[in-house]
């Protein structure tokens, strides 16, 4: 049963949503006044946020291309957000035209928009669900149509797990996904951390908490633990720009300022 099916108030445009705020950081207009107001506030407190989000998107692109190079042609992108430039299916399908992508987001507006964007796309679809409903996601007919459970899969949780509090047991959730992933599958993960900019982390998390979308920043060690059962692909858990950059020029002098960790693990 879908978690949201009994509640009507989950389509809430009176409050800011992480998905739409994120879109604003990226210079998009898929947002409402509340979202913009919150995003501006956040940027005022921490002007580098848009750059950090760009670095996150850049990591997302690189990781997808890496996965394709490893022979992965099916993707499950959880917490996919609002489609924008350089979506996973675009990146993947540029490299491998038959690549299949299933987007998952708990945000009904993000899911509805994704559905509109993907209308007519044979190889990509969206499921509105909570990351925690692992079986509901894998059993969803839209996912079953596109994903071959016997083939390796790329599971993406990019800028997503910091929305899952410790009480919800992120490691065990990831563990549940691992069990569903055939050998050779990959987990792609980026995660907010306080380790790069301890000075900024406090006010930022406060803002998100007040907005009703609490963030849990995690340490490198905690992020590494999320990869239990996976073999970390080189260079391991690193700040966003340091994960297999396209060229040295893309790496800032202070990569820690892009205070998110990125990593890819392989289930072997």
């Amino acid at each position: 049963m879908e978690r949201s099916s009994w509640a009507s108030d989950d389509v809430d445009i009176e409050h800011a949503s992480p998905a739409r705020v994120y879109d604003y950081y990226l210079g998009g207009s898929h947002n409402f006044a509340v979202d913009r107001q919150m995003a501006r506030q956040a940027i005022e407190l921490w002007p580098e946020l848009p750059l950090i989000m760009q670095a996150n998107r850049a990591f997302l692109r690189r990781s997808v291309r890496y996965l394709v190079s490893q022979g992965i042609t099916q993707f499950l992108d959880i917490g996919s957000g609002i489609p924008t430039e350089g979506n996973v299916h675009e990146v993947a399908q540029t490299a491998a035209p038959e690549a299949r992508v299933v987007y998952v987001d708990v945000d009904p507006v993000a899911a509805a928009h994704s559905r509109a964007i993907l209308a007519g796309n044979q190889y990509a679809d969206v499921v509105q669900a909570d990351l925690r409903d692992v079986t509901a996601i894998f059993d969803n007919p839209r996912a079953r149509r596109l994903l071959d459970p016997t083939q390796p899969i790329g599971v993406l949780m990019v800028a997503m797990l910091h929305f899952v509090p410790d009480e919800a047991g992120p490691a065990s959730i990831v563990g549940q996904y691992r069990k569903m992933m055939p050998l050779g599958s990959h987990l792609v993960l980026s995660h907010a951390t306080h380790e790069g900019r301890p000075d900024q982390a406090g006010s930022h998390t406060d803002l998100y908490r007040r907005a009703g979308a609490p963030l849990t920043m995690r340490s490198r060690l905690q992020v590494e633990t999320l990869f239990d059962g996976f073999d970390l692909v080189a260079p391991g858990v690193v700040f966003l720009p340091l994960w297999r950059p396209d060229s040295p020029a893309d790496v800032d002098d202070h990569p820690e300022r892009f205070t998110g960790f990125a990593a890819v693990g392989r289930r072997g």
Partner: peptide, 26 residues
């Protein structure tokens, strides 16, 4: 921007309608 605003506004409406349908169904 206008297109995106339009798109997200429609997405909001669609999402709400879907939720209402789901609620009505439940």
């Amino acid at each position: 921007s206008l297109d995106e605003q339009d798109a997200i506004y429609r997405a909001g409406l669609r999402a709400r309608r879907q939720a209402e349908q789901a609620l009505a169904a439940s």
